[in-house]
Design a protein around this nucleic acid. Structure first.
Lengths: 241, 241
DNA sequence: GGTTGAATACTTGTATACTAGTTAAATTGT
DNA sequence: ACAATTTAACTAGTATACAAGTATTCAACC
């Protein structure tokens, strides 16, 4: 049953998700090379859906194809990440201004206020779920502005940044700060003070950006270390000429 | 010589360009259905590169696939176009603010000033080239802000809007206005007056947006008319029961 | 040891064969 | 004449075969 179409999700989708996960979980490290055949064998699929998945990941900036010479996981480009964060801030600030100019407050805002109200600290989730909550806070904020294309692009950027943002809430002080900052932003929005909200939001993102950058670099060093050790372990004894 | 790889451009690229052109030139109308096989036969390519091109066009929002039931040119969604214009304005305004905050004026600005200086009306190009010039004005402006991701997204949006923006400069008054408005924006930027520049730019885009919308709707009606006539011509004599 | 070069194993790009699902026409029963 | 049902043609999804270019290996040579 090689032709395992699960009715709903296509083979190409499954390969896409699997590869994306490999990249996100650092099983495929930035710089790693691999071939379409490898992936196909590993995930029990033919090259056709593998290619489709790879081209999709290429367009999203995760991998690149070397003409007739295999594929490579794109190295993390910190300058690019800076740019993505910058763009994220631009979009979210614009969204805030739009929301404040709306004739009436979107219902989504009230929902967010309920979630991020610091008066209900008992409902605070732990690290792993806070990450998802934080991402959806920013996504929902942009969505509330009512521009679907802006929301789409913002989601694309969030996807691209998730690989490093997920390392944020590993410390409790970041969780606490996030709750306070989100509540602050929402409060300014409800007062209609777009300028203050936008400034608070920009500061909020910059802080998380800085925290995450340090952790990421450390993690990559660790992963590379493990990688090298695993390689050495498979070799009988390294040549030393 | 079915396997006509021209060394530099792949078959998939050629198919992609050809299809995009078909859509832009209204040879494929919004709503038209077609199959991978059709395209392959018409462009003398196998289904594999055709599929790659189609999936690319799908991701860019020009076509959609109906499960095991063919492809369709996505109908023009005017709400989406409004959103794209809106997003374009957001990005370009942000770019202007960034440029004005830069320590020194980017050289690209001086280049633009030279091109769009109304004191040199002799160099004004005619309609078709002005369209390309206008697009590159806005792209260069964003690029000058120095955020490559922002420039990339802006280019993507410009691509998406080109199909209708190309109908702008069909009247001389729009050409004249464009020159004046661009010069005005650049002037404000050079004075460091980001607010004025941003406002002028937003107005400039809105004007062109409105002009283009009317022309587009008319053109689509015309194309649909021609389409119907061609269909009727091929039929011997329509059944009338 | 160091360099060159041909053979070879891999790689992606493309074509084609086959499968599963959809659609619309043809056929049949009433 | 019409509705329901069968069937045949057509569709994209997938697997595989082949072509064309790339990287690597390894032996021959200096």
């Amino acid at each position: 049953m090689t032709t395992a179409s699960k009715r709903k999700t296509s083979m190409a989708d499954r390969v896409y998700e699997a590869l994306k996960d490999d990249i996100f979980e650092f099983r495929l490290l930035p710089g790693d090379k691999f071939s379409e055949g490898d992936v196909g064998t590993r995930l029990d699929a033919s090259r056709t859906p593998v290619r489709e998945a790879l081209y999709r990941l290429q367009r999203e900036g995760y991998v690149e194809v070397l003409f007739r010479s295999g594929w490579r996981v794109k190295p993390l480009d910190f300058e690019q990440i800076e740019d993505l964060y910058d763009l994220r801030i631009t979009l979210e600030k614009a969204a805030i201004h739009k929301i404040c100019e709306l004739p009436e407050e979107p219902s989504a805002i009230r929902t967010l206020v309920a979630i991020w109200n610091p008066d209900h600290p008992s409902e605070r989730a732990v690290g792993s779920t806070v990450r998802a909550l934080d991402e959806s806070f920013h996504c929902d904020l942009v969505a509330a502005a009512g521009n679907r294309e802006m929301a789409r692009i913002h989601r694309e950027i969030s996807d691209r940044l998730r690989i490093i943002r997920r390392l944020d809430f590993t410390r409790n002080d970041r969780v606490d700060a996030t709750y306070k900052e989100h509540a602050q932003i929402l409060d300014a929005i409800r007062r209609g003070d777009a300028q203050t909200a936008a400034d608070d939001l920009a500061r909020h993102i910059r802080i998380s950006q800085k925290a995450v950058k340090e952790i990421t670099m450390e993690r990559i060093r660790e992963a590379a270390q493990r990688h090298r050790q695993a390689e050495n372990a498979t070799e009988g004894s390294p040549d030393q000429a």
